[in-house]
Design a protein around this nucleic acid. Structure first.
Length: 502
RNA sequence: GCCCCCAUCGUCUAGAGGCCUAGGACACGACCCUUUCAAGGUUGAGAUCAGGGGUUCGAAUCCCCUUGGGGGCACCA
């Protein structure tokens, strides 16, 4: 078997897209599974839309996911790696020019002087006449004189690649099987070099895949119809044609190709929302592929071990955030204490910055909370929801929530007062969950209350919330003084409400 | 419009002619656990395998047609 060399070739015209990340992942899994080489190449020839910020976002996003490339640009000051470079297309311009010149010399390509306006008009006319839009080939047979005349007019030509008529291009796609497409359906001769001299995608992709000895082109299904153009280009350049594998698309809930208009497509946004890379990679891998077993929670290494390109699905898959979130919870629960504390830190900092908490807990405080926190985190960003009340100076709970359905304000105030005394009696020294619970249960017993009523009342008084980690652990975390102070405050609020006129 | 691709529970999927009265997971319901919320456990509902024709002793699986959906047809990638 020839060396397996695959690549991800994103364009920095936007932030790292889910689809790009998934394609990168499948390429990566394929390469690692077979001991091949995974290459990163930046397709930055669209100078109008490419930005450095997007480039960084893509590089860092893939890195965050744990996807490392053997050849490609470095991140930050890191040098580029690999002997087929450079890996940025804007640094490879001479190669495209050179390749185009050769095609021109062999009459496999020609200069075309049609202006964008003329082409646009042509296309509009064809559409109006309900014809297939295609380039007419008007400049296909220009003489020297014709060309000179256009040059005098000040026109600068593009270079068009000749698409032969009446030929069927066939290839065996690893995921789709045998595919045949007629060259007449390709839209006519293809522009490969813009009038400003920069190359276009279909050309650069073929030139670079050939130059970089890419063995398998693994990409989204949206390129399936374009594949014949690339095959023709490979043939014209006398290069070996790689194997193709077209991955199913990731879809919006309405089954259209996933787009940022309808879905969250930026990988960075999921990262900011508290998804962790283990879960994200796991989820992406299972979108369009499965192990064939009932295993679902798989690490990157396990995915590498099991991955098989030939068992990738053909049909598109809707992106399901709920399933992602479930996997995220699975992975968060598997993290070690130190690891989780580290990953939670930036999210606590964000809480502080947003003014939702008043100070940051020390690592050891966080560690103590982990037993009740970890299994409650669907995402890292949920940390504030769950334990934020512990790091708030003043709590002002809603009296309506403090009063259980079965009680009124006066009853609740009286109950909380009794409970406050019981809790105070536990004392600072014996401040443990096991010490707090029994006397409170005894109190409930004596008064003939329902434990749930009292506990809910205390919960809201002490946390401001109706859904919290276990109450007694929560009180321990809060501390003796602060627990009593919050109870006092709640009783005070209730008193004011129970007897507003007195 | 033309060309190409696709089609199993709401969603992700298992399924390579008999193991399928179609399995798992998410989501949903119930129950257990339980001070709330989670997590976990048990369990339920949910797919006439898009429809119709073939082939075959036998089809979710193979073939054809229909329908539906998607993608592509740029001096974007």
């Amino acid at each position: 078997m020839t060396d397996v060399r695959v690549r991800i070739a994103p364009s920095p015209t936007g932030p790292l897209h889910l689809g790009t990340a998934r394609t990168a992942l499948f390429n990566y899994l394929f390469a690692r599974h077979l001991g091949g080489t995974f290459i990163f190449r930046l397709e930055d020839t669209d100078q109008a839309r490419s930005t450095e910020a997007h480039e960084l976002d893509i590089l860092e996003g893939l890195h965050w996911l744990g996807i490392r490339w053997d050849e490609g640009p470095g991140i930050g000051d890191e040098p580029e790696r690999g002997s087929y470079g450079p890996y940025r297309q804007m640094q490879r311009l001479e190669r495209y020019t050179e390749a185009a010149t050769r095609l021109l010399a062999e009459d496999k390509a020609y200069y075309c002087y049609c202006t964008p306006e003329e082409l646009d008009a042509e296309r509009k006319r064809q559409e109006a006449a309900r014809e297939t839009p295609r380039y007419s080939g008007r400049c296909a047979q220009l003489t020297q004189a014709d060309r000179a005349a256009f040059e005098v007019e000040g026109r600068t030509p593009v270079v068009r690649f000749r698409i032969p008529a009446n030929r069927t291009i066939a290839f065996d796609d690893i995921v789709r099987g045998h595919v045949e497409i007629d060259t007449n359906a390709l839209g006519g001769d293809l522009v490969i070099i813009r009038s400003d001299g920069t190359p276009l995608y279909h050309f650069t992709v073929a030139v670079d895949d050939a130059a970089m000895a890419i063995s398998h082109v693994i990409r989204g299904e949206d390129h399936l119809s374009n594949t014949p153009k690339h095959i023709l280009l490979f043939e014209a350049m006398g290069s070996a044609v790689p194997q193709f594998a077209h991955l199913p698309l990731i879809l919006n809930p309405d089954r259209t190709k996933m787009s940022k208009r309808k879905s969250q497509t930026a990988v960075a946004a999921y990262r900011a929302d508290g998804f962790i890379p283990e879960a994200f990679v796991n989820y992406l891998a299972l979108l369009g592929w499965s192990t064939g077993t009932e295993e679902e929670v798989l690490s990157l290494a396990e995915l590498v071990e099991r991955f098989e390109l030939s068992t990738v699905n053909k049909a598109g898959a809707i992106f399901d955030p709920e399933r992602l979130e479930w996997l995220n919870g699975q992975w968060i629960r598997r993290l070690s204490a130190d690891d989780l504390i580290d990953r939670l830190r930036p999210f606590m900092e964000a809480e502080l910055e947003a003014g939702r908490i008043d100070w940051l807990p020390a690592d050891e405080e966080m560690r103590a909370l982990l037993p009740v926190l970890q299994e409650r985190l669907p995402t890292l960003s949920a940390v504030g929801e769950i334990i934020g009340f512990l790091f708030v100076k003043d709590l002002d709970p809603d009296p309506a929530l403090i009063v259980p359905k079965r009680w009124d304000a006066a009853t609740t105030a009286a109950a909380l007062t009794a409970a406050r005394q019981t809790i105070a009696d536990v004392g600072r020294v014996a401040w443990e969950a096991d010490e707090i619970e029994p006397p409170l249960r005894r109190l409930v017993e004596e008064r003939g209350w329902r434990a749930g009523d009292l506990f809910m009342s205390i919960r809201v008084a002490v946390t401001g919330r109706t859904a919290t980690p276990p109450l007694f652990d929560t009180m321990v975390a809060l501390g003796y003084e602060r627990t009593l102070a919050r109870l006092d405050r709640a009783i005070e609020r209730l008193g004011a409400q129970a007897a507003p006129t007195s």
